[in-house]
Design a protein around this nucleic acid. Structure first.
Lengths: 223, 223, 223, 223
DNA sequence: TATGAATGAGAGTTCATTCAT
DNA sequence: TATGAATGAACTCTCATTCAT
């Protein structure tokens, strides 16, 4: 048995445990930040409050995160990943069909929004207009989702032999769809708190946007 | 000794002048705030900066506005009024027709967004997630616009003898339409700065949402 | 009598009083900073301590001074002005003679050091190695004094028909003289606290440096 | 059970190796500290930076040094030892003659300053005004050098049958000489970075101070 | 009405030092 | 011996708001 450790395995048990604990702490703080920012607002939350909520010292927060801005950025990146997975999985499993559009919409409202209202608060409310860097990550998040929607849209069109006229057209529609998601979620999650009915509401919204897409296909295919 | 002045008459000329100056100062400060908040961000703007930009003292700002929060609230209320007028005028002039929907959309992008990008920045970016009170006024602004859209929608439906099934249905669609407006404006005004092409972009978006509405009518009327 | 105020006179009494009070506050804080930094050390003094010592709020200190660094810089600039006046006056009154050298030296030890030990502490101790900007002002202070000494040195030489050989020579001697002043002041003011005897000590130091200069003149004039 | 090890014998080979390694680590950290403090400044250097630069952990630094203050003290003591050796060797080899004075000065500028500008930065810049304890060690360093110079001065005087009048006289001259060294080094090493010409500059300074000493001897011996 | 100096609580951030492993 | 995560006090600086003039 060789004594020398190979590069990526056979770490000492204590090193492994430390590694795990580190990751765990990181996630604990991030989760506390998500909750705190969503409940109290990004600006009204102080690093000390966060430290208390995470049950660590202020210094520890700064050990894991560069600064306050970094916290919301990491948060957005994680949420972006989850959101994309939520929507993407649908397209992956169902192919680029109109059905997929519908299911992705349902997934957004019935899965993402209902299960993670705090994550919605972060992306749709707390991260808005904070700083150029945060805005950059926000844009990246939206751009990725938009591009997923756009991809599906193009595929559906291709299936039906439809092409878009304008330079933006398809992209604008993808952006519009994201707009519907965002606004509807915001309205009924934060302003009217009818999260119980979000399923019905979402389905109405999805039906509407599907109509738009459909109409587009019919109209263009007819021409 | 003069009796107490009645509300709307018998003002001395100098009192009238003062009244005018007062109004003028108020508007000067508000305009400076709009520009400052849009350019620097609400949180990064200090009351001193605003005073300098308005060419008045800090104290004067507090004479005209209760506090910083009040500034953004007044701003939103004024913008809300303008926005509503922009959209409402269209419906007023053209009646509740599908054409009105189209024209209102065009007015939003080609008039409101292009001429007042800073007002867009205030409603869609700087006022987001600031405080319960600000949020309340934001909601009011959106609710009014939504309700206008909703009214038009209902009228169009009635014209065509169509009714909505669900509890929300129509309202959700109105909210969705607002979402399209908001997101498309944000994307192309602040993130990709293609304000030159906003006309084309807006028309694409409007065409899409019109399709949604159309489809709805057809579909429902067929049933 | 003209009603319009001319630019630099006829300020309203209250404006003048404010102006005076402003200047007074500024000087009060600066004086407190000098004392505090000299006694406690620049780094160990907090802005709160300074505010307490000045009997103003922390905010007021920041109203008058950009930041902590600015305080020591203003301090150094004022001290530099005083120091230069102390030395310069002697040369002005006595012309560029050997006697002036002696008197300037005496003025430094017997006037500047003895009367303003705290100012010595600032220039010779507390401002050393703090930041590039502070160092820049320190250099400026020393450079001005050095250049005064240098000017006198050159004048004395010219009187005696002596010229310097090397590129630096004269400048180096001026710097050396400043070094003598600095070190001797530091040693007996801060390390051995024999400020009572600083007169005698200073005279010894001056006699020594005068010898150096003298020797230079004799030697060179002989050659 | 083995008896307690006597101080200087019977070390096991491994213990010796450890001893060597210990000493090596200590020196590595100290050298890194010297470089770091000289380049970044004592206050702007953190213990973590030092640990990284030394390629050890933060804890290890604390194993070898009591605290941050201890680092600069050890540094000063080592530098003091080297500086004294540099100057002292000259006097040892050449006796207490005027020639020794000259050579010691040359050694300071051409050997110490040019070869160890970072050590100069520590003694003349970074250690100034830090804390009573650091100041105590700084004083000790200067006092030792001063006393060496003083010793030489007295010896030269004795050789020539000269005595000093005042209580301080000789000591003050020794302090003045140190002042010349310090200021000239600082000026041309840190402020004008003409370390290439430091040889010429140093020779000018030494010539000046020699003149002072000479003059003293002539003058006094004449009287 | 208007001014602007003054307030002071509170924020984010740093970092020397400790200690369980 | 060595590690490095964790601590938390302390710091500088900001800024919304007030108020005597």
């Amino acid at each position: 048995m060789p004594a020398k450790k190979s590069k990526n395995e056979n770490f000492s048990p204590s090193a492994l445990r430390r590694q795990r604990e580190r990751e765990h702490r990181y996630q604990t703080i991030l989760a506390a930040a998500e909750k705190l920012f969503a409940e109290e607002g990004y600006h009204k939350s102080s690093m000390e409050q966060l430290a208390n909520a995470s049950e660590v010292s202020v210094g520890a927060v700064y050990f894991y995160f560069k600064n306050k801005e970094d916290l919301i950025i990491q948060l957005m990146d994680e949420i972006g990943y989850l959101l994309r997975k939520t929507l993407g999985t649908v397209f992956l499993e169902n192919g680029a069909t109109m059905e997929s559009f519908k299911l992705a919409g349902h997934a957004f409202f019935e899965d993402f929004c209902i299960n993670y209202p705090e994550k919605c608060a972060i992306v749709f409310r707390e991260s808005v207009g904070q700083s150029p860097l945060v805005e950059k990550h926000r844009k990246a998040l939206f751009d990725k989702c938009t591009s997923d929607v756009l991809g599906a849209l193009m595929a559906v069109c291709k299936n039906q032999g439809v092409t878009f006229k304008g330079k933006y057209s398809a992209e604008v529609i993808a952006v519009s769809i994201m707009g519907i998601y965002e606004r509807v979620a915001y309205q009924y999650l934060f302003w009217e708190d009818q999260s119980r009915d979000l399923k019905t509401i979402g389905r109405d919204a999805v039906a509407f946007l599907l109509g738009g897409v459909n109409n587009l296909l019919n109209e263009t295919s007819c021409t």
